[in-house]
Nucleic acid binder design. Structure first.
Length: 404
DNA sequence: CACCGTTCAGTTGAACTAAGCAACGGAATTCGG
DNA sequence: GAATTCCGTTGCTTAGTTCAACTGAACGGTGGA
């Protein structure tokens, strides 16, 4: 009986892949042949980096633009082309792409250099070596390789600098003067336009010899992009009329984030598919938006270290009771109680204060420092998510901490 | 009422510590001649 | 006697702690109108 049902399920499933033609085209990793509405940027960047193909050092480059404006896509597109040209011509060119945002991958000076070395094919211990030593290894590796030019792309560089300071960039730019056989160029990519104010002017000037700005897409542009991708991704006629327009409007509202628009479209398609419908309707978009948001936050929450999770749980629990913004001191009290229940060694308030700051950075909670006059100074904190999701997170966290 | 010093409850910065790790070098052990 | 393994030492990073200075507006007192 059960088996029969299962057979039926798969048959039904196969019959019903009548929404997508090739879902790949909507995935984030997908690199389309042509990139729309970014010709100026691509040409500029290509022009700046082109000297590398003649084995001359290109200027360091700084790229700004909000999330989902195609920065990463363009740079990958360009460097891929460069690499293939370099290969046919036999030019020594190496390109290293690093995303600094990834926690525990490249968020300190040591780890960043270690990661670059790893990209170049040599393992390096996670700790134990002096940073100078890692630089030395990196240095030797550069000299040993025959590549004339090495381009290092640091995505989300603002995160790195905020956490680890700007010395890294300074050191990396300075390395060039000691290199004989090779030269390195840096490409920094940042979401944040104003973050350069925070860094040392010397570092800034050396890093941004050239600058390229990626403006947000406007609604019609997103529409073009969506249409193009939808052509390859969806079967003909499965999209309800006006769906793409609506989707583009959603994304344009969120500062022109094309990545989000594509994700929205994909998830909407998946929802329709799961419901065994033959058409993707506009109201699926709302559902999709909700689902994406939910999964994004849940994913962040799950991957947090234990202490952060307990802190977050404290915040949610307290907020439930108080139903208004809550203060650091109160949260710390609850946190201590929770720690006692879970046999977790409680951290000091100092550290918890930092953790709250981190959670704020992640966008899971909103925490603002307020002065309560002579009743002190504290953070006002409230969770930043719909109620249903809070419940869900609460369950997940409780389960992970092993308390009910 | 306007002004001003005080006060509170954390925030924030800096120095410090413990835990983990790798490399180094000398001591102990093994091995082949 | 040489090669190999073992172990303690040293020096490093990182997460977290300790210490202490700093913060900024409400409170409450003061003086002036």
């Amino acid at each position: 009986m059960a088996q029969k049902g299962l057979n039926g399920f798969f048959e039904k499933y196969l019959d019903e892949t009548n929404i997508f033609k090739s879902k790949k085209a909507l995935q984030i990793s997908y690199t389309p042949e042509t990139i729309l509405h970014r010709d100026i940027q691509i040409n500029t960047i290509a022009g700046i980096l082109a000297p590398a193909l003649r084995e001359e050092k290109p200027s360091n480059l700084f790229i700004y633009g909000k999330t989902g404006t195609g920065k990463t896509l363009c740079i990958k597109h360009i460097t891929n082309h460069m690499l293939s040209v370099a290969e046919t011509r036999g030019t020594g060119l190496r390109i290293i792409y690093l995303n600094c945002k990834m926690k525990r991958i490249a968020d300190t000076e040591y780890r960043l250099v270690a990661q670059i070395v790893k990209e170049m094919g040599q393992e390096i211990p996670a700790t134990g070596l002096p940073t100078d030593e890692v630089y030395n290894i990196f240095f030797k590796l550069l000299e040993k390789n025959k590549d004339k030019i090495t381009i290092i792309i640091l995505d989300e560089i603002d995160q790195l600098i905020k956490k680890a300071g700007d010395e890294i960039i300074y050191n990396l730019t300075r390395i060039n003067s000691d290199l004989v056989h090779t030269q390195i160029s840096l490409v920094g990519i940042s979401n944040n336009l104003i973050f350069t104010d925070a860094i040392d002017p010397r570092v800034r000037s050396s890093l941004s010899e050239e600058e390229v700005v990626f403006p947000p897409y406007n609604a019609p542009q997103i529409q073009d992009i969506l249409k193009k991708r939808a052509e390859t991704a969806f079967k003909e006629g499965v999209l309800e009329k006006g769906l793409i327009e609506k989707c583009a409007a959603y994304a344009a509202r969120e500062h022109g984030d094309a990545r989000r628009a594509l994700e929205l479209l994909r998830v909407a398609g998946e929802i329709a598919e799961r419901k065994s419908l033959s058409k993707v309707r506009i109201d699926h978009l709302d559902e999709a938006e909700e689902k994406i948001e939910k999964e994004r936050i849940l994913e962040i929450v799950k991957t947090q270290p234990k202490q952060s999770q307990v802190t977050l749980l404290s915040i949610i629990l307290l907020f439930e009771k108080e139903e208004k913004t809550c203060l650091t001191g109160d949260i710390y009290e609850i946190y201590k109680k929770l720690c006692a229940k879970t046999d977790l060694r409680p951290l000091t308030q100092r550290r918890v204060s930092d953790i709250i700051g981190e959670l704020d950075m992640l966008g899971i909670i909103t925490a603002t420092v307020v002065s309560k006059g002579r009743y002190g100074r504290t953070r006002e904190i409230k969770p930043n998510m719909p109620h249903a999701l809070k419940q869900k997170i609460k369950e997940v966290l409780k389960e992970e901490q092993g308390l009910s």
